[in-house]
């Protein structure tokens, strides 16, 4: 349960942080505001998951944190909290999908990645809101209402760019080619997901592959884009084996708390 909650939190935080990189740099004011709002939703969702993960962790700290080697984390005296989990773990202790940590790229990459992840979250949270774990269910119920906006917004942009100009279409094709090898990981269960499925907390993510492909295919058809054939895929994020991009992201995101532990403003 702790690892599942941490994974859900890490996914939300890392994609949220990536999207926040657009704040002040969006292609136009409205879309700058849109992507920043989405980032805010995701970081808020991450906080809800981290708060729960911290409570679980405090109940059985030794067992749950032995995979964390970061000295900064183990120096925390007293109960750990959401910030300790977000700011004091190292890259190999994060459990997010690789797709979430890739660089934001151009607008086409950001939109395509957002659509892929939001669709996955929509399917996942729709089920999770009926989970036997009431706390995860409540977070999912809350998050789903926001994710529905994210799917609609990113889906509309997929169609607008795919069916837009020659250049926007070309950029979408490049983005899809670049991101596709990272999609497979969404549907391949990690050990903690198999355990969660066995105890009835959540379905095996394999179950979402087909509905995800159907929904993506429907949007791509409207956009005049091709759904790539199934191919080999990158994996490892859920086991802590990340791309080099995550380390750079964490260096920036965690700098303040690492340099000035406990800083507040």
């Amino acid at each position: 349960m702790f690892h599942l909650t941490l994974h859900l939190a890490d996914d939300a935080l890392i994609i949220g942080h990536r999207n926040s990189e657009w704040t002040g740099h969006g292609p136009n004011l409205e879309q700058d505001i849109a992507i920043s709002n989405i980032a805010l939703d995701q970081i808020g969702q991450a906080r809800n998951f981290y708060q729960y993960a911290a409570e679980l962790c405090n109940n059985n700290r030794e067992a749950y944190t032995k995979f964390i080697s970061s000295p900064a984390f183990h120096q925390v005296s007293g109960p750990i909290d959401e910030d300790d989990l977000a700011y004091l773990r190292d890259a190999m202790e994060f459990r997010n999908h690789l797709l979430a940590e890739l660089k934001k790229g151009d607008w086409a990459v950001t939109i395509t990645r957002q659509f892929f992840i939001s669709l996955y979250q929509q399917l996942l949270y729709t089920d999770l809101q009926y989970s036997a774990d009431k706390r995860l269910a409540a977070i999912a119920e809350k998050s789903l209402k926001e994710v529905n906006y994210h799917v609609r917004w990113s889906g509309e942009w997929v169609i607008r760019l795919g069916d837009g100009t020659e250049e926007s279409h070309r950029r979408m094709e490049t983005a899809i080619d670049q991101l596709w090898p990272y999609v497979g990981e969404l549907f391949v269960p990690a050990d903690f997901q198999l355990e969660a499925a066995a105890s009835g907390l959540l379905k095996n993510p394999e179950y979402y592959r087909q509905p995800w492909l159907e929904k993506t295919g429907a949007a791509f058809e409207q956009a005049g884009l091709m759904l790539p054939a199934p191919n080999w895929y990158q994996k490892g994020g859920k086991q802590g084996i990340h791309t080099e991009h995550l380390g750079h992201l964490l260096a920036e995101m965690q700098y303040l708390q690492r340099s000035h532990p406990g800083a507040q403003w």
Binding site: E30, I33, L40
Partner: peptide, 13 residues
């Protein structure tokens, strides 16, 4: 509607 997202999370433009 100009934008689904407005000056705060709860508003659209």
């Amino acid at each position: 509607r100009i934008s689904e997202f407005g000056s705060t999370a709860c508003k659209a433009l």
